[in-house]
Nucleic acid binder design. Sequence first.
DNA 1: TTGACGTTGATAAA
DNA 2: TTTATCAACGTCAA
Length: 483
Amino acid sequence: MEAATTATAAMVWLRKGLRVHDNPALDAARRGAGRLYPVFVLDPRYLRPDPAAASPGSARAGLARVRFLLESLTDLDARLRRLGSRLLLLRARDDVADAVCAALKDVSIRPSPPLSMQNLTGFFSSAVGYILTIASQWNIGKLCFESDTEPYALARDKKVTDFAMASGIEVFTPVSHTLFDPAEIINKNGGRPPLTYQSFISIAEEPPEPVMEEYSELPPVGDTGEYELLPVPTVEELGYGDISQEEIPPFRGGETEALRRMKESLQNKEWVAKFEKPKGDPSAFLKPATTVLSPYLKFGCLSSRYFYHCIQDVYRSARNYTKPPVSLTGQLLWRDFFYTVSFGTPNFDQMKGNKICKQYHRIYSPITFGKKYDPNGNYIRHFIPVLKDMPREYIYEPWTAPLSIQKKAKCIIGKDYPKPVVDHETASKECRKRMGEAYASGRLDAIPSKGKPSNLSQRKMSHGDQDASNSSIAKLLKRSRAE
DNA sequence: TTGACGTTGATAAA
DNA sequence: TTTATCAACGTCAA
């Protein structure tokens, strides 16, 4: 007992990866640790209600996602408690990295002004005070957290890593959110992310096996000092007011639910073996044509490697099974593909400054697309009840129905349901025309004028840029010759 | 160097 | 109802 209080203390900082199974960061943190502090920092940027948001939610997440996260935290806490541990929730007043640093070591680096002087209200306003008083008592010797490739996370984690290393704390950041290490894939591809699925597949080999050690117990948390034992807040406590009208999605967060859903899907071995994504019905909502496991993978309630491993198990017992890209494993590989491309592409989430962004001539028709997958319009009938009795042949264009039909369906267009805002045919043609013009003018700017190459802009380009640019120009010239 | 291909979808033509 | 065409470009095989 004496040893437990003096032995090395480790912190596992949880962000995504909200699970006990296949959690290399948790596994590394508990090894040799006398005390283990499993910490999650409530991030105001992610959780604080944003009054300016178009629908209820924070600046970064909608209410459904906020709720899913809170449910996942509740479940994780319960699962840790069964192993003699528990989840320690910290509130960041503003910056998550500051909160983690403060918990790692007695922090005098960022004295916060008295709360009364700050224009802060609500759940997150009282945060840092607690952390400052507990900090020095934890004596963390080792910090483990799962690597995260998103830009916001990279900046946040660098700050924490730099601080921890400078403080003599051992830092371990395994890759376990994706099947593969995106940085390693990019390395193997010569420093650039593979930009087609096929090239990604040819580089990727077999993903690592999941770490599936069954724990009977985890090291105790030990003395939490002055730390206020904070339960997982409710959305109401976070400051989300009148949400009684909000429909709560049927998908509950958490590792327990994730594993249950996965088992349920994988039980039907024939369905698993025959799964082909393009053959699924995207309009199916009562009985989805997919596993609906992606939100669980996103928060790491389910390990993608464990899921992959379990699918392979089913394949082994099947005579025949589908292959990537359409198969279930193919879907996991798509996820890895996009994580890799986004990690290796600056400004991936924007058109501006995004070198691989293709120019968008695709206009989806709200009429044609629906008719193809859901000719009876069941989706519309469910979510827009006023249209539920509209005959099948008019369900996608109810304004074309004769008045007698509209009356019979108890839905007069212009009264019970609005008239079309635009005429799709003319609007899409106009859009297509103007996008074409904008695209053409943009491209022409990039072509050096005859006999007078604009080497000014070319000088700034790397070899790769020149190749890409020249080949585009060649194609454009070829096209204009053909015309 | 060239041509074919890719989780594609919309639309016009046949 | 089926088929051809378009629009983009990285990648790979020929």
